[in-house]
Nucleic acid binder design. Structure first.
Lengths: 130, 130, 130, 130
DNA sequence: GTGGTCTAGACCACT
DNA sequence: GTGGTCTAGACCACT
């Protein structure tokens, strides 16, 4: 799985790395138990400082998404060990998304159809949950 | 409409102001053509720097959400003059939201039910679109 | 409140800072809502790198102990906004402590008396809970 | 007695081994004078490097918990030969535990009740002290 | 040969 | 004038 970093945007690099690994885990591009590149390897691949990758990995570890280990590097956790379920942050972000759509005049049905489409795509990969 | 600023959180204040005005426009709490408080007024109400409110208003203006003029201050635009429809940013944020839900083991149907519920709530207010 | 850093020990500096601020909050040496020194100020006082203090503060923020804010620097949160209650980590550390005492031949009553004494001391300060 | 190693956590493996043997000694799962597995044996069982087990055993030896000799391998010491009593480290760790509980708003009595419960459990095993 | 921590120095967004 | 992020370079504990 290849990560794409946008150095120009205003999303911090460590956040881009974290987000893309979460998406990889969701789509099945990274399987549970699979090895991730080491901090140094990924830093070299992306042309960023190891500390930046380290920060992304530390965040993923705190979220229960990956386990780190001096011998084997980083590894994607099983779903069971991850922080579970829909939380306030999910709701809050979903609400903002919906509000922006409505404020721009998008009909409810069009929005829900679009989200359903995106969800179908993501959930129909070689993914982890049915 | 009352804005609530969370000084402790990660979200910049100007962004919180912008987000809440968008939500107000979506829910109907602010009507098209309605006057918004002046930069100074809102800054005083919230206890923040006028520059911060100014930045939020400038962002909303760039998005076509509000119009500013010297005489009448800021005013919520009609839906027709706003940037319309679902854009890449919407998709990207929706995708990240869906990915995080799936990565945490949330079944697709549970996620969609939740989003539909939130959308129903928001769209059934005194809102602007059907 | 004065922090004491042990550069020789094997406890990371950022962890020492975090631990001592938690103890200060518990003893009442730092009151809820009280300002903490800025990252740079504390770094200068302790003779460590700002990044090290930053890491300690980021940890405290993630635990809900402090709020950070560009205008006012760091501030101790109210108890209500902190992660609450006794968790698995507390139990696990308590269990290890008890096990080591017993393995060293300390009678149960002596251990409990000692812990009660320490708790009395700490809870009888100008502290936050009764 | 079976040791469980958590490769994902923050605690170094050698420390986990040491901690669990101390807990085994405290609970009576390992009796005074009892043979421990050899370094190689335990390393093979746990799937870790023999150096890691060696480090744990060296630590336990330095603490007076075990005796090593070429003939009989490692053996749990009598209580009388162990470093005795509550030391500064115990106090310091207990204090940190208490401080974190109080900082999170746990009432003193709730904390002491919990610790007493844990101590009762541990001391009522086939243990070594009354 | 990995991740964890730390330093010194820098630029930027936000206030 | 704050915290947030990033770099380049380093040493260390652990494996």
């Amino acid at each position: 799985m290849r990560l794409e970093i946008d150095l120009a945007g205003d999303v911090p690099i460590y956040r881009q790395i974290r987000d893309q690994i979460v998406r990889g885990a969701a789509s099945g591009a990274i399987a549970p138990g699979e090895q991730l590149p080491t901090v140094r390897q990924l830093a070299a691949d992306l042309g960023v400082n190891p500390m930046t990758v380290n920060k992304a990995y530390a965040l993923l570890k705190a979220e229960g998404m990956i386990a780190m280990n001096r011998r084997r590097g980083a590894q994607l956790c099983d779903i069971t060990s991850r922080r579970s379920g829909l939380d306030d942050s999910s709701d809050s972000r979903a609400l903002q998304l919906i509000a922006e759509a409505r404020a721009k005049g998008v009909p409810k049905q069009e929005l829900l159809t679009r989200i359903t489409l995106l969800a179908d795509d993501l959930y129909n990969g070689e993914g982890e949950t049915k």
